[in-house]
């Protein structure tokens, strides 16, 4: 194990996979000479050359489409979105081409691409730059969607995504790039897609959360421990395919669930998770599932407003107390 930042873990995953497999290449805006807007591709141009670390014109649909074309003949492109918000410009390529080519070619051409970059609220990135973009993608059959919360997951899941034969949407976070953690140095360390992890064991309530919200839920759990509420935290890691078993297993143990998500709540991840908890574990529940979500409004630029839009530790704690019928009067 080595201690490194989330950014370094992603970089290591890319480097290892590019060394292991000559078909892997990186393509996107500013990924080469500039080494990525968030420096995730640092040193790659120097090590692998311009054929495998490709700076592109500013054209998200274009370079996503190029990646899809190249993947159909066996290359394995890792496509960087400078921010995932810009992936909206490539939405047709991702939804209508990447996700459907395998189906529409009768299984002849699969599209083993990874589309990666940061998404979700960060620090004053404003309305067009702070969206929790996973909601746009996990609805689509044919896509896999990953949100890695820790440096270890960033490395293990990115490697799994690169090795996967399906198109994988891999959304990082600006706020996590500098987070440090232990990361295995073994180049064969891979975390399979579709496996959730229990981040914290508890008895009284299951909190499902990922990315920044997972860390916030962890803080909430520590505080609630002092009040005698034991919180279990499940991080889905892969949103599609979702590891329903781990989430349901935890809910069957604790009988209560809170789902936390950073983005707007309407038709969000919380809706889906709450629905399948209801479908599979209704009779195990001792309280209705609670959702803690961002406000259903565009992200404000002003710091105070931004903070108020995103779920706070206090709101998470309140929801946990409510499902535990431990509301303070």
């Amino acid at each position: 194990m080595a201690v490194m930042t989330y950014r370094e873990a992603l970089n290591l995953a890319l480097r290892e996979e590019m060394k292991r497999d000559p078909r892997v290449f990186v393509i996107g805006e500013e990924v080469g000479l500039y080494e990525g807007a968030y420096k995730v591709t640092q040193g790659l141009l120097k090590e692998f050359g311009p054929k495998r670390v490709v700076d592109t014109p500013i054209a998200e649909s274009g370079f996503t489409g190029v990646g899809i074309g190249a993947s159909m003949v066996g290359l394995r492109p890792v496509i960087e979105m400078m921010t995932f918000n810009f992936a909206l410009l490539a939405l047709d390529q991702i939804v209508n081409s990447a996700a459907k080519m395998y189906y529409m070619s009768g299984g002849q051409y699969n599209v083993p691409i990874v589309i990666r970059g940061p998404g979700g609220p960060a620090h004053q990135l404003a309305a067009q730059h702070s969206q929790s973009m996973e909601v746009y993608f996990y609805h689509v059959p044919g896509l896999k969607v990953v949100r890695p919360s820790t440096p270890m997951d960033a490395k293990g899941l990115l490697k799994a995504a690169i090795r996967d034969d399906n198109p994988v949407v891999f959304i990082e976070s600006e706020t996590l790039y500098a987070v440090k953690g232990e990361v295995p140095e073994d180049p064969e360390f891979v975390i399979p897609l579709g496996e959730a992890i229990v981040r914290r064991e508890g008895r009284d309530v299951t909190v499902v959360a990922y990315m920044g919200m997972m860390y916030r839920a962890m803080e909430a759990a520590e505080e609630l421990e002092k009040e005698g509420i034991s919180v279990e935290i499940v991080d889905p890691r892969t949103l599609r395919p979702m590891d329903a078993g781990t989430i349901i297993g935890s809910v069957r143990k604790t009988h209560r669930a809170v789902v936390v998500e950073a983005g707007a709540g309407f038709a969000g991840m919380g809706s889906e998770i709450a629905a399948f908890i209801m479908e599979h574990a209704f009779d195990d529940l001792d309280a209705p599932v609670e959702r803690v979500t961002g406000a259903n409004a565009p992200m404000p630029y002003a710091r105070g407003l931004e903070r108020a839009k995103t779920p706070s530790k206090e709101r998470i704690m309140e929801a946990i107390r409510r499902v535990c019928y431990a509301e303070r009067s």
Partner: peptide
């Protein structure tokens, strides 16, 4: 763009 990707490959 797929055609360009095939040619790039």
């Amino acid at each position: 763009p797929h055609a360009v990707g095939l040619a790039y490959a």
